[in-house]
Structure formats: structure tokens, C-alpha cells
Design a protein around this nucleic acid. Structure first.
Length: 467
RNA sequence: GGACCCGUGGCGAAAUUGGUCAUCGCACCUCCCUGUCACGGAGGGGGCUGCCGGUUCGAGUCCGGUCGGGUCCGCCA
């Protein structure tokens, strides 16, 4: 007999069904026993009485919470007074005829039938596979999937093509610290894990893939925060021949408006079209480049999207005593006079824009430089020696020499969006297997030691003295 | 790299100024219960208070260190 999902039972009153799932609460009244059976679709109440087969009935007393069981029974409408309006299947219940225990379960180390906010995260992360059983995380991850699915549909409709780019990439001096991966074939050399698909997507543009997108995994070896993980997901977009920044911004805007309308209908957006503010104005008025522009901060359902534009091109990096890119080195300066760029880096603005939501930066993008002279000037400002630069970005320069159209794009950190949209304080609540504040995976106990053999193959020695 | 917060049975919390205070709820085990849906009732087991050291006649309660978790700054092109 084919299995019926819990949610489908309401359509099968009077029919015999086979249900499979996890045991939730068990309410025994002696002879009459109720079990809430849980599957991915929802919960159904199953009733056991002594009328059923004697052997089967005695088996019921062995069932404990979180056992996985199979129920053969009849869907029956509940008498008026016994209906439960709280659950979608509250109108019916299953009169059990047969029961089978498929998998037993130890007692859970912490409750999973609540939201789990009060449980120490150490425990939740160590037993993440149990933590994921709770409704809150199921709901979050379902919404996450629905949103990503819709995002794909929207950009696909507009002719964008999703292309996967390498995770195993190259380490570069600019940007976030990368995780590095030792090469076995070339001892002493390392890959860098991609901190974003930035260069790849620009090269795809040069190759004529005019509208690119990717639900892309990015990795950065920086210290995490409540809104940051070493490993996170971006909706990454790039397009050739944009008429202006507006082309990119309006696309991202359209995506988020649709997502809110269809996936989060209970939410309302403060202002459409999304208002714009220059970086200068934001810093002067709010002393931050990601101001929280909600009108009523008590309102859980308010989403205040805001564009911050006209970022400076360069910023002084005190640590290295040189100029660095405010966004990234490929950003197109608003100044076309190369001499001015070199002479007054601090005054140069960039064609760069960030999307802010309730005080969180949820997207950042720019038009990119597409002529070698400007690109070279920018690198010179940032103090890279010419030779050094050519080595680092050789492929990039070469590609430019073969021609690349004007282009621009944006990347949206969707974990952050989900955290805000799902009223979660931390993005860990919208990621299935997140890591701790020092990038440990408590469940897998990673990072971990590797064998001497593995190290030898890689030509790596671990020094004994750790200072 | 830095600052701050937290650490009591499986989970969550409580223990006046350091002195029978290791308590409560949930969970767990046993028994009773035919209409519950956070079922109800009776009884029971389980901790020496993250770890190490110090102060004190005496520390869960004070001090130092350490380990673990969190928040923030740095960092995050």
C-alpha cells in the first residue's frame, strides 16, 4: 500500500491509509492512547484503542517519543467537540488498526518540540541533526528553499543563465582572507577557496555570457558574527552592457519585491521603489553605511530596503599603509580622468551600490572597469607593483586584452535576508549546519587532525612548538 | 588580536551580604486513568554546582588561571 502524507489525510476521510513518520507527543489514558505522528508535511493524531489487534495494541505501549513508526488505519472525522483548530489535520484522526516500529530512538538530549531559543547553542550545534527536527528550523529551511527557487525562476525568465564557478580557486592578496588548500601534486603550493565568484563571472561576461547568475557558495576565513559565517550563500548576478547602475539595481529590487510578496506575504515593505541615499549622506546622518530605516522598529513585519550609493573608490588601509579598494579593485570609478584618479584617490567615488535591509547589508554591487588603463591606474593607487599585479591577475589582464564589454553586477547575501525575513537574530538559524564563533563544526568536530600519511603526501610538517 | 557576558542533575531555571540550599519545572522510570491534543493523578531515580588552583573555620556564591558557548571591536575586496 502506498504511503499517505499526514497533510493528505484530510482529503481521505473514511479511507484506509498507511502513514509513516516520527512520534511526537504520546498521551496515554490507560486504554485509550493518542500519538501525534509527525512527518515533513505536518502532524496527525493517531488513536489506539483495545479494539485493535491484541498484539498490535500491546506494541503501542513500547512506543516512545521520536520512534519512527508505521500506522495502518482509517481516517475518521472527529466528533465536533474533539476537533483541534490549531492544526491543519485537526478535523480528523486516524483509528489505528496496525502499527509497526521502524526505528527506535534514545531520549533526546534536549526538547525538540519547542522553538529551542532557550537551549544552549553548544548543545544545539553538537546535536544539530536533532535540532533540525524542530518545527522552527524546518519552517526556516523550507522558506529558504522556496525563496531560492523563486529567485531562480525570476532571473531565468529574464534570460539569465546559471553557471557554476570553481570553489577550488586561487589565493590573491586583495580581499578577504581565504581558506587555503594544499596541493598534493605541487607541494608547497596552495589553492585558495573562492571568497566570491567575482573574477569568474566577469570572465564569463567577456566570453559573451551576457546575463549570468549563480546561487553561489562563498568562503572567507574571517571571524564569524551573528550575521556572518565563514561559508555563506550569495545570489550572484552579472550583466553585460548595462545602461547604468540602475539596470542592476532595479533587477535586484524587483527580485526582492516579488520574494516578499510571494514568500513572505505577511511582511510589508516600507517604501517602493526602494529609496536611495549616498554613502556621504548616510555617514553624515547616521554614522553608518547601513542605517536601519524602519519607521517602527517594534513592527516585526516591516522591511525597510534602502540603497546606499556613491561609495568612495578607495580607502586607506592603515595596517598595510596603502590605499585599498573600498569594494573591490574591479569597481568602475566615477572619474574618467586617470591622472585625477592617481592624484586624489580619496576624492574618487565609485559606481558602487549596497542594498540595506533593516540595518543589514544584504547586497553589494558595482559597475566594473572594462578598460585596462583605468584598471591599471586603480591597481597603481593601491600600491601593487606592476610585476606583482601582472602575476596576480594575469588571466584577468589577458582577458581584457582580448576584449570585454562594459558590465556590472551585484551579489546578495541571502542568509542575511532570510534571517531578517524570518525574524531570526542569527543567520545560524537559517543555515542547516552552521559553525560556531571560531569556525568550529561542533557536530563533526571539525577542524580536526589529519594523519601523518596525509600530511606527508602534501609535503606539510606541523611544528611542535606552538609559541 | 582585543573587550564583555554566560557555564548548577538530560534540558531550562532557583539558591539573602560566602554558613544544612543543592531546590523547582520539563524530560526520564514505575503505577492508575477511554477523549486527550503543553492530557491528568500517585510514586521514584538522577547533580556535589565545566575544570585546576587560591582566599576562608567554611565557596555554587570571592580571587586567579583554563576549557567551552555567545555578543561586540578589529577583520569581513
Amino acid at each position: 500500500m502506498k504511503r499517505t502524507l499526514n497533510i493528505e489525510t484530510v482529503k481521505k476521510i473514511g479511507e484506509e491509509v498507511l502513514l509513516k513518520g516520527w512520534v511526537g507527543s504520546i498521551r496515554s489514558h490507560g486504554k485509550l492512547i493518542f500519538i501525534d505522528l509527525r512527518d515533513f508535511s505536518g502532524i496527525t493524531q493517531v488513536v489506539f484503542t483495545p479494539k485493535m489487534d491484541e498484539k498490535m495494541y500491546s506494541l503501542v505501549s513500547e512506543i516512545k517519543p521520536e520512534y519512527i513508526i508505521e500506522i495502518l488505519g482509517e481516517v475518521s472525522e472527529r466528533p465536533e467537540s474533539m476537533r483541534n483548530a490549531e492544526i491543519p489535520t485537526g478535523l480528523i484522526e486516524i483509528k489505528a488498526k496496525e502499527v509497526k516500529i521502524i526505528s527506535k530512538a534514545k531520549t533526546m538530549p534536549f526538547p525538540i518540540d519547542n522553538d529551542g531559543y532557550e537551549i544552549n547553542e553548544k548543545n544545539r550545534l553538537e546535536y544539530r541533526y536533532l535540532d533540525l527536527r524542530r518545527d522552527r528550523l524546518k519552517r526556516n529551511l523550507k522558506k529558504r528553499f522556496e525563496t531560492i527557487s523563486l529567485m531562480r525562476d525570476i532571473v531565468k525568465e529574464k534570460g539569465f543563465v546559471e553557471i557554476e564557478t570553481p570553489i577550488l580557486s586561487k589565493s590573491t592578496v586583495e580581499g578577504a582572507r581565504e581558506f587555503i588548500v594544499p596541493s598534493r601534486n605541487f607541494k608547497g603550493k596552495f589553492y585558495g577557496l573562492a571568497q566570491s565568484p567575482q573574477q569568474y563571472k566577469q570572465l564569463l561576461i567577456s566570453a559573451g555570457y551576457e546575463k549570468y547568475f549563480q546561487i553561489a557558495r562563498c568562503l572567507r576565513d574571517e571571524d564569524p558574527r551573528g550575521d556572518r559565517q565563514a561559508e555563506f550563500t550569495q545570489l550572484d548576478i552579472e550583466m553585460a552592457f548595462p545602461d547604468s547602475e540602475e539596470d542592476v539595481m532595479s533587477l535586484m529590487e524587483e527580485i526582492y519585491i516579488k520574494v516578499v510578496k510571494e514568500i513572505f506575504p505577511e511582511k510589508h515593505i516600507t517604501q517602493i521603489p526602494f529609496p536611495k541615499m549616498t554613502f556621504k549622506e548616510a555617514m553624515e546622518k547616521y554614522n553608518t553605511d547601513k542605517p536601519d530605516m524602519r519607521k517602527n522598529k517594534e513592527d516585526k513585519d516591516e522591511l525597510a530596503f534602502y540603497w546606499i550609493t556613491d561609495f568612495p573608490m578607495f580607502e586607506w588601509k592603515e595596517e598595510y599603509k596603502r590605499w585599498g579598494a573600498c569594494h573591490h579593485p574591479f569597481t568602475l570609478p566615477q572619474e574618467t580622468d586617470i591622472d585625477k584618479i592617481k592624484k586624489n584617490p580619496k576624492d574618487i567615488l565609485a559606481h558602487q551600490y549596497d542594498l540595506v535591509l533593516n540595518g543589514f547589508e544584504i547586497a553589494g554591487g558595482s559597475l566594473r572597469t572594462h578598460d585596462i588603463e583605468t584598471l591599471t591606474a586603480c591597481f597603481e593607487v593601491m600600491g601593487h607593483e606592476d610585476e606583482d599585479l601582472k602575476k596576480q591577475f594575469k588571466h584577468y589582464y589577458n582577458a581584457f586584452e582580448f576584449g570585454i564589454p562594459p558590465h556590472g553586477g551585484i551579489a546578495s547575501g541571502i542568509d542575511r535576508f532570510f534571517a531578517v525575513a524570518l525574524n531570526e537574530e542569527s543567520i545560524r538559524e537559517v543555515i542547516a549546519f552552521p559553525k560556531t564563533g571560531d569556525n568550529k563544526d561542533l557536530m563533526m568536530a571539525s577542524p580536526s587532525n589529519v594523519s601523518k600519511k596525509q600530511l606527508k603526501e602534501l609535503g606539510i610538517e606541523i611544528s611542535e612548538d606552538e609559541e
